[in-house]
Nucleic acid binder design. Sequence first.
DNA 1: TTCCTTGTTTATAATTATTCTAAAGAAGAT
DNA 2: ATCTTCTTTAGAATAATTATAAACAAGGAA
Lengths: 136, 136
Amino acid sequence: MTSKQEFIEKLRNSSLRPTKQRINICEVLFNRDKTFHFTISDLFNLIKDKTGEKISLATVYNTVHAFHKKGYLKEIPINSNQTYFDTNVTDHHHFFDVKEEKLIDLKNEDIGPIEIQKSIPGKKIKSVEVLVKLED
Amino acid sequence: MTSKQEFIEKLRNSSLRPTKQRINICEVLFNRDKTFHFTISDLFNLIKDKTGEKISLATVYNTVHAFHKKGYLKEIPINSNQTYFDTNVTDHHHFFDVKEEKLIDLKNEDIGPIEIQKSIPGKKIKSVEVLVKLED
DNA sequence: TTCCTTGTTTATAATTATTCTAAAGAAGAT
DNA sequence: ATCTTCTTTAGAATAATTATAAACAAGGAA
């Protein structure tokens, strides 16, 4: 069980005051055992369902973006109309079930090290993302 | 120099009649030496610039989607507000220069084989995409 | 506490990419 | 040439995201 104090700490680290709404967002995002893949719309609906409290969509967007900027959330590169985020911010990859529109974690061991031989002068690697699309 | 006949063939293969507008799209897309990464908006503007002829945005969307469906274009999974396409439909990967918002091809040799150890029952792998984000 | 400043929430409007629509026009077969 | 079917087009509709600005809450200071 993740404690409210941890949520407050995460919020303060992200330069956000710990308000009721933001704590509720944290409850849904971080109070879990397993990694959580979501869109803003998923999160918005879950907050209503889980906490019984109403929240503005704008607040969800703002808070998610602050967490993303701070590194508490990861954005998953997928071609979709919606943006997907992940609470697992460690270096890992994904299956994407195209039909079900569902993401599944791939551990680094499932893929093995990826070694990039090419380099671009003046640029350094920020992240390496592997997306494996699945079909029936 | 790619010939008009090839464009017509590509169009017919995609179940599209070869109209003036679609030939113009082909000119911009396929009459090149190097691979071409673009958004619909890029393409729309280039058609005006290169051919001097006006085209409807809807026609660009429709034609690009038909080519994509047929496999003449590849969609590149990036988190961006816009969708990126690639005229290089061979199996390859990308650098994405986050600052410049620019894509750079990575040959398969630049990365080496990617072996997916995990599998999901009832599903098979449709594609494997590696996206390497670059920063300064 | 109470006051005050600054940050926050919210509903709503604005923006942007994409898709839809339906009428006018072009392609292709006969 | 004629006719049917497909295509183009402008503009409307949709949907995700971002911006706005007024009401409200948090946190510090007195």
